[in-house]
């Protein structure tokens, strides 16, 4: 598929280019962007395609991260095994939440996902014996060991991340052309029409929830070893979920490159703000938040749409792009 191949090619180029970059700050920024993009892409599988905005995706980041790290540090379970368990736990949680929220849509669905994320945070803070409470868990680094996702160089995490992002993007591209992708599109427009067409709505919803959770979790378990620190305020906080939703929207939920562009945009604001204003916090969320307002009011299809318009130089809006059309 055209845009998928183009994106993967671009990511390969970035991976190659990273060997020419020695500045650890830049490599760090690239790594953060990559993992945010993974989460944005996985979130889009659930919310962008179905139209139901989830504001609680951080549960699929925090829970697998905690499962993997606690199993590793307390019970010495090898990270790769623990990661699989963490991902499985995220999928189970997704099945549960997906089934529970079947009848909800719009703001009610958003509020339910927000609440789920808040409950997760409370539980993490409360069971501090296991989770370390608000102080989190520092991850002890002994020696480079790829089976335990311990790399001594940022670039290794970046490369793993880029590979994962490729996989996730290919998965999402394939999904949109698949049977399920069609069903989701029908459900998004009208559940009544979907039912009349014989689509098992409940099953579809739960399955995509699980898929989205699995991909999000995969990114989370790697990222947390890059961070070397499990911070509940960040991983389980309400803000991260909202940020992911917002930058994916800014990038453009209808595009395969949308969440990636959105993540890059968001990280760019951070870099610029740090450079110009140093330690004054708030610039990144401020610009992100207001960008969403601007995008929703002017070009709801996002930055990708704006980019396409520029490329077409004439300024005419792109025709409705249906990803499925390219699969003949």
């Amino acid at each position: 598929m055209r845009s998928c191949a183009a994106i993967c090619a671009m990511l390969a180029v970035v991976a190659a280019a990273s060997f020419l970059i020695q500045d650890s700050y830049i490599l760090g920024v690239m790594t953060v962007t990559t993992f945010l993009a993974i989460w944005g892409q996985s979130w889009n599988l659930l919310s962008g395609l179905s139209g139901n905005v989830s504001l609680g995706h951080s549960v699929f980041i925090a829970m697998p991260a905690y499962v993997t790290v606690v199993l590793f540090q307390t019970w010495h379970v090898p990270v790769l095994a623990g990661a699989l368990l963490g991902i499985a736990a995220a999928v189970a949680l997704a099945a549960f939440i997906g089934a529970a929220t079947l009848r909800l849509s719009g703001p009610y669905f958003a509020l339910a996902t927000l609440s789920a994320s808040a409950v997760m945070l409370s539980l993490i803070l409360h069971f501090s014996d296991i989770t370390g409470g608000p102080n989190g868990i520092p991850i002890a680094f002994t020696e480079a060991d790829w089976t335990n996702l311990e790399f001594d160089h940022t670039r290794s995490y970046l490369l793993v991340g880029l590979g994962l992002l490729c996989v996730v993007t290919i998965f999402v591209a394939g999904f949109r052309r698949s049977r399920l992708g069609f069903y989701v599109a029908v459900i998004k427009s009208s559940e009544a029409v979907a039912r009349a067409a014989g689509i098992r709505i409940a099953l579809v919803k739960v399955v995509i929830y699980c898929m989205s959770a699995a991909l999000t979790a995969a990114g989370a378990v790697v990222y947390v070893f890059y961070l070397r620190f499990l911070d509940p305020g960040f991983l389980a906080g309400l803000t991260l979920s909202v940020e992911i939703a917002l930058f994916a929207v800014v990038g453009g939920t209808g595009f395969l490159a949308g969440p990636i562009l959105g993540a890059a945009f968001y990280e760019l604001i951070d870099v610029v703000a740090n450079a110009r204003f140093g330690d004054v916090g708030g610039w990144d969320v401020m610009v992100l938040g207001f960008s969403v307002v601007v995008i929703v009011m002017t070009e709801p299809r996002g930055l990708c749409e704006l980019a396409l318009r520029l490329v077409r130089a004439g300024g005419a809006p792109a025709r409705m792009r249906s990803v499925q059309r390219e699969a003949k």
Partner: peptide, 17 residues
């Protein structure tokens, strides 16, 4: 309701899928 994210023929294909 029009099925917004699919083209006309894709909307019809769903029945076959």
């Amino acid at each position: 309701s029009p099925i917004v994210d699919l083209s006309a023929i894709e909307g019809v294909m769903v029945g076959g899928l």
